[in-house]
Nucleic acid binder design. Structure first.
Lengths: 248, 248
DNA sequence: GCAAAAGTGTTACCCTTACACCCATGT
DNA sequence: ACATGGGTGTAAGGGTAACACTTTTGC
């Protein structure tokens, strides 16, 4: 019942190099482009999985300063290094850790996956070293789509998380520019959930949820072809929605 | 923008011992005892944090077989080794990974925290090596309560997760014996949320939620002092509740 | 004026809530 | 018979969904 290794581990771990594992971070960065829900992927330029798509990511560094970097910082750094894109700390969160012993064919790597949201992103810079980064519509990522490691699993989990967080948090505002109209916000829900929502009811629900959005007093420029100018709102400070937006 | 270390990491990681980190698992194991919501903690018998309370846990092993163990297995093993208690794989899930560089004063350790539910548990066996395990009511864990490392943070996150999962999953049935009455199930909600629920309305909501519970056809023994014998149910196969149990 | 998009009003319907009431058992 | 806990019925209130309607612009 009691294992003799238990205390041994705790006493030797200060000096010995045992039971150490490589720890990576991966980032599932989503955006909306061309009215599609898209995810940032890189095309691998080295084996294993040469030519396969993968999430941007890499090992957490231990040689920076005395103790190393925390996982979220590592995720932001790897994203920048591999794609040239920068995401704010407020727009990235931990998703889940993937630790199956055989998930990397070379040797053991545990990955702390992150979920990121990127509004108004530049085009990713295709890195050197034959690494190519691109936004890919999530609808196109099916069984045919060649993904490295267990990244298909991670992407599916990330999509699920993003879709369900729309319902009870203000995540949707992170897909919008700093000032946006209610219609723009509704379009985010419609694109990510792939369903139409009633414009009138959506408007009332968002405005009746305290702290969801904040009125700027300004109006957006009317579209060409006419239509009443929409009022501009900015994201509120509150994180949770009291009246959930529903998917029925 | 592009960092020269990027490809270097990927090519040398097969051979060199760089950027490796100790990875631990910790378990927040909850149960209901004496009509209280309780968590399993151990009293540390070695420095650092000698005499402080901590979550059961330890390092993931890399020397078992070729590649090592997966995090969930490690969590179940550490729990058994440190407390003598066994939890089924279906009653434990990953909570979150804690990776702040300075969370362990000795050296860098990243911990994959797990959330476990233990119905009908034996008393934890106080381990040898001066390690003492005990169930502690969560209401007693305040700022005065001395917890090691960042375990106060982990416990708070675990309690939040457990409380919110009651609402939209069948987690509450995991606190019950294999066959239970609706009143027993309601008591789980009442204890964990610290609020009373209407017995009649609770009954109807649970029974109208397909797959939440399954009728065994049997009745429980009537309590001494009278009362109609309650019907016995068992946990259904469905994981999600369509009509959420609310906390208002 | 007409089309188009933003925003408000209205109503039937459903679910929830609160609580009364019946059922089955021990003493 | 009475107390006790299990379980069902019911009616008032609140939120939602569907859709009609008004407002404000471009052409």
């Amino acid at each position: 019942m009691i294992d003799k290794y238990k205390v041994a581990d705790q006493s030797i771990q200060i000096t010995e190099q045992q039971n150490m594992i490589r720890v990576a971070v991966d980032v599932a960065l989503f955006t909306i482009r061309d009215e599609k829900f898209q995810i940032l992927l890189i095309k691998r330029g080295i084996p294993p999985f040469l030519g396969f798509w993968a999430l941007p990511g890499g090992l957490i560094r231990t040689n920076l300063g005395k103790l190393g970097e925390d996982p979220k910082s590592a995720a932001i750094r790897e994203l920048r290094e591999e794609t040239g894109l920068t995401v704010a700390p407020g727009h990235i969160e931990q998703l889940k850790t993937y630790g199956s012993p055989d998930r990397d064919p070379r040797n053991r790597v545990i990955s702390i996956a992150h979920l990121g949201i990127g509004p108004n992103l530049d085009n990713p810079s295709g890195g050197s070293y034959a690494i190519h980064a691109e936004f890919i519509p999530v609808e196109g990522i099916d069984q045919e789509f060649k993904l490295a490691f267990d990244h298909k699993l991670i992407i599916d989990d990330a999509i699920d998380r993003a879709r369900s967080k729309l319902e009870y948090t203000t995540l949707a505002t992170e897909f919008c520019p700093p000032e946006f109209t209610i219609t723009q916000l509704r379009t985010v829900y419609e694109i990510i959930w792939s369903i139409p929502l009633d414009p009138g009811n959506f408007q009332k629900k968002v405005l009746s949820s305290p702290g969801f959005v904040e009125d700027t007093g300004k109006n957006a420029n009317p579209l060409s072809g006419g239509g009443r100018p929409a009022r501009l709102y900015k994201s509120g400070s509150t994180a949770m929605i009291n009246l959930p937006i529903r998917r029925n």
